[in-house]
Nucleic acid binder design. Structure first.
Length: 376
RNA sequence: GCGGCUUUGGUGAAGCGGUUAACACAUCGGAUUGUGGCUCCGACACGCGUGGGUUCGAUCCCCACAAGUCGCC
């Protein structure tokens, strides 16, 4: 029995949206699902107990960061990442590939791997499929990601083609190096913004037979419509009976459009990062809490929300005050709210899929958020 | 009462005769999508204490007044 399996519970009649269950060694989770990001073995400002209370079941953590500090060996010594961070739910670790992309200047990509300078102390470091797998085995996450290259946007065809081919070779090497039987390795579809490369990338990965597939290299600055098109192309080549994970996407409109195209899993820093910068997410759009219009607004962030902040009556006026005063409780209130909001949003999507009402849900969403409607 | 110094936006201030009055904070907006935790990007003085004067031209020079501040009696 493989560590990670996926089963479809219901396929929406009108779209490619599906409701399912992702089985892992640390529990079985209903999809579509959102994974909060805990880069350095913690979701900033939120305890694992609070995460569980707000409905999170699986979190993402980061190979790159944990590799640099505290190091794979320390986590292994602690008994793995679950024990180290005191989280008994699911964990997915990113491979470090994205950091190679976002580090930009400080790196050099070769066939064998990537040399780069640590953002912490400037020391020279090396990551490759083999090193990434070794670290990810030490961390012991339920789902581990293949070491890939996230192609910047825009990128010319030749570069995208070369990079995508290398990512495929790295996926093969990742698979060969991943020998743990209690962890499942996902391959990552790349291909830039080129339909043929996307298809080819997906096909090659499917031949290698992973327990799940991610779509990477999207939401890197391209127009929304182009992203949806590339996503559609990517998922159309993936098998139905495996989980599909769209990496790095985290706003409601993207969720809807992606689930509609067959995505089951998401992770994103957006809800937690913007919370720290004073933004609350709601069913009717964004609240920039520092705006003057909330000075005398003694309502909660969103009516009928059962997050910690709203349920206990913390008002917009008060949270605005906390942010203007640089009080850390404000960050926590918005972080808890945003994470709960996404859990609620995922639950709503699961329910409408089960009732074959996904399209109505989508239409209704755009009525409430007309500015987010994609161009035809 | 006498003498010195100071007076630029909400705040701290740069500029000291010549095109759009620097910068920072605050304020007001916007951004943020496989996370470098207080980030990034915009906007924001039609005016330089008040009134005169000199000059082609004055925040900048001169005079008077006002306010603040320090010292002396």
């Amino acid at each position: 029995m493989p560590a990670i399996t996926y089963e479809i519970i219901h396929q929406d009649k009108n779209t490619n949206a599906r409701a399912g269950i992702l089985h892992t060694p640390h529990g079985s989770f209903l999809t579509p699902i959102f994974m909060p990001v805990g880069t350095k073995a913690t979701v900033k400002g939120v305890s694992p107990e609070e995460l569980k209370d707000l409905g999170a079941r699986i979190v993402l953590s980061n190979t790159y960061h944990l590799f640099l500090r505290p190091g794979a060996e320390l986590v292994r010594e602690a008994g793995g990442l679950h024990k180290f961070m005191h989280w008994d739910g699911g964990i997915l670790t990113d491979s470090g590939g994205f950091q190679v992309f976002s580090l930009g200047e400080l790196r050099k990509i070769k066939e064998e791997g990537v040399t780069f300078r640590s953002h912490i102390d400037g020391s020279k470091q090396f990551l490759s499929p083999e090193v990434s797998m070794e670290v990810q085995m030490a961390l012991g996450a339920d789902i581990v990601m293949a070491f890939d290259e996230c192609i910047p946007y825009p990128a010319d065809y030749e570069y995208a083609k070369e990079s995508t081919a290398r990512t495929a070779r790295w996926a093969r090497r990742s698979k060969d190096a991943m020998t743990a039987n209690n962890q499942g390795l996902f391959g990552i579809v790349q291909g830039g913004m080129y339909e043929d490369l996307r298809r080819q990338s997906a096909k090659e990965l499917v031949e290698m037979d992973f327990p799940g597939y991610a779509v990477g290299g999207l939401s890197v600055g391209e127009p929304k419509e182009l992203m949806y098109e590339m996503l559609q192309v990517s998922t159309s080549e993936l098998p139905e009976n495996k989980a599909r994970y769209l990496m790095g996407v985290g706003t409601p409109d993207y969720f809807i459009e992606s689930v509609m195209r067959g995505i089951d899993m998401f992770d994103c820093v957006f809800p937690t990062r913007v919370a720290r910068n004073g933004m609350a997410m709601t069913h009717t759009g964004r609240i920039v809490i520092k705006n003057a219009c909330y000075e005398h607004d003694h309502n909660v962030l969103e009516e009928n929300c059962d997050c910690y902040a709203c349920r206990n009556g913390y008002t917009r006026s008060y949270i605005r005050h906390l942010f203007r005063s640089d009080e850390m409780f404000g960050l926590r209130l918005l972080t808890l709210h945003n994470l709960r909001f996404l859990q609620i949003f995922m639950k709503e999507m699961r329910e409408v899929i089960l009732e074959d009402k996904f399209l109505e849900f989508r239409t209704n969403f755009y009525v409430n958020n007309p500015n987010l409607q994609p161009k035809q």
